[in-house]
Design a protein around this nucleic acid. Structure first.
Lengths: 335, 335
DNA sequence: CTTGTTACCGATACCGGTATCGATAACATC
DNA sequence: GATGTTATCGATACCGGTATCGGTAACAAG
């Protein structure tokens, strides 16, 4: 407990006593408000220093009726995507004095609702949530919070307030088009728990729409029942390659799975005649000894833009940018 | 702003008015305190429901003089290690009603101090920080916060209060011993910005101590000047292999770098005569088509234990477990 | 009928800040 | 000397909860 368990931290009142002024004057001096003489300010600052005074955000926020908190809810931390979004948010918040409070929903709508409720009880000045597919009661809660709701990552749906992301349906479509244009015809699919990762499901649906347009379809697919991972991707790919040896392309639910697929391809010596396609554009994918296709999602940027919107809301109550920020992922690794 | 910008959220007072009781009674009813008749409780709950009342943690915490916040400061989010620690913390906190507030230090001591200061102004009931090497003024600040300070990941140093992690010096030593026992003799090293990643530096120092014991030394090394990544590991490894073609083992600052190294080895067709050794035991490393050696660090577990300590502190003020929780990483991938 | 006892509830004082308005003193102006 | 102006500061009332104590009504016991 430090070396002073139980010793309360000094309050404004105590600093005031030490400086021989009222706490109101201390408050003004520390905030750099006018109406404080230079000498008094000096005395106050010295007393603050000596006592090691640290402001109390609880009292500040309660009193001033606004917090510098931004609530962030993401589904998972087990692949690098959401951490990078968080890093982007952290960078975007830098210098604003705002703090991110984060919670995990674990791809579970009920858990998400509970986490959001907990968050809202802190009266954050903005909340960033993942996706647009919250159930009705969650949406109602978010609306009645009367703060900007920033929905990130996804674009396919009706946003509550602000929306920063990309269309996963279109991303799937574009990838399919690019692969077909590159001559691929015999497609397989490898993914995992799509009923939870709705964005992956949207990409798959988009991909299939385009396949259908070309009178094509997935020849074979494997859906895992654990969270996506490199291991799972590798395992399922081995399975799929055994069952359908004549595939010339496999679309994966994301890059983690696709990298696993690439490893499986290497182990099966199928690196030349089959192309693995993922989603995200992980740094890892670029370093791979074999080429894989992927769509580069602007994860950091999404975080930064979301943070900017949150910042704006603190100053003006209304962010300056538009309601929807749409990104179009760049496809790389084909040809 | 939802559909009700500016509409203040209902307060206890308003719920009380709606239920026809005093706000004290509402407070009691909602907290499940005794001294409330079943009928009154019912009325209160209905009013709460109708108004969509959500408690105000600011007022609660200020009034009760304790928060359910746990501050967490980690250096980075750009590899999967710290996100997994955060996930562990999140899991460990589950059901306790506590919230994690997180900040990034970016491997920068000054930034870390500022972030910690900001965090402390929220009067968290515990704080989790990374490593034991905070400068004096930061330590002073942490001590005077009069809350449990939980230092994680590292063990080599003097903890402030609680310490959960492993000895990176020893981890380096053990890896060196294991590799030497397996017959490796001609070692190289690849790492990045060690003056910032102090734990990687400790591992390297430990590794070198054992090398010295055996009258060995790194034959060649490459130190990058950007953050560790798969790409960087691959690039530096190619460089090192060109400069020192007769190495039979390369020790890396972590698994990201080692995986990059493995890719370089594959590209240079050196998978049979040289072993790459990293640190962390990433899931990715296990899926690789080639074997690499690594020490499995219990990242999730460290997070969970830290969270448990934080929880304990909220109830009793003093966690029940011991002051130091030491893990010994298991070495895998040799033989 | 008086006196406890118990169950339930409200009034009041905080928690540690900020907003607002009023007070005081020093100085300039008439 | 009376008055206005400006700079500086303090007193007070909040913010939205909780802790604490006291009050009232109903019922049992004497």
């Amino acid at each position: 407990m430090g070396d002073s368990l139980g010793i309360r931290k000094p309050t404004l009142e105590e600093v005031a006593a030490a400086a021989g002024v009222s706490k109101m004057t201390v408050s003004r001096a520390l905030r750099g408000a006018p109406d404080v003489s230079p000498e008094t300010r000096e005395r106050v600052l010295k007393a603050t220093e000596q006592l090691g005074y640290v402001g109390n955000q609880l009292a500040l926020s309660l009193s001033s009726q606004r917090t510098n908190l931004v609530a962030v809810v993401v589904p998972s931390m087990s692949n690098i995507v959401f951490p990078e979004v968080l890093a982007g948010i952290s960078v975007g918040l830098e210098g604003s004095g705002m703090q991110a409070v984060f919670g995990l929903s674990d791809y579970d709508a009920r858990k998400e609702r509970d986490v959001i409720r907990d968050m809202l009880s802190w009266r954050p000045s903005a909340i960033i949530v993942t996706g647009l597919d919250q159930p009705e009661d969650t949406v109602k809660m978010l609306r009645s919070a009367a703060i900007p709701v920033i929905q990130i990552m996804d674009l396919d749906g009706t946003p509550i307030d602000f929306n920063v992301g990309l269309s996963h349906g279109k991303a799937g479509e574009e990838m399919a088009r690019a692969l077909i244009a590159a001559g691929r015809r015999r497609f397989g699919y490898v993914g995992s728990v799509l009923e939870r990762d709705l964005r992956a499901a949207k990409r798959k649906a988009g991909f299939e729409r385009v396949l259908l347009e070309h009178r094509l379809a997935f020849i074979g697919q494997r859906i895992g029942d654990t969270l996506s991972s490199v291991c799972l991707g590798k395992y399922l790919t081995h399975e799929l390659l055994r069952a359908e040896p004549n595939l010339d392309c496999i679309y994966y639910s994301n890059d983690d799975m696709a990298v696993g697929g690439a490893f499986a391809g290497m182990e099966a010596s199928r690196t030349d005649d089959i192309l693995m396609a993922g989603f995200n554009g992980l740094e890892l994918a670029a370093a791979l000894p074999v080429r894989i296709a992927t769509s580069k999602s602007p994860r950091r940027m999404i975080g930064e833009v979301a943070a900017r919107l949150a910042r704006g809301s603190m100053v003006t109550g209304v962010p300056s940018s538009g309601k929807i920020t749409a990104f179009v992922p760049e496809i790389i690794g084909i040809e």
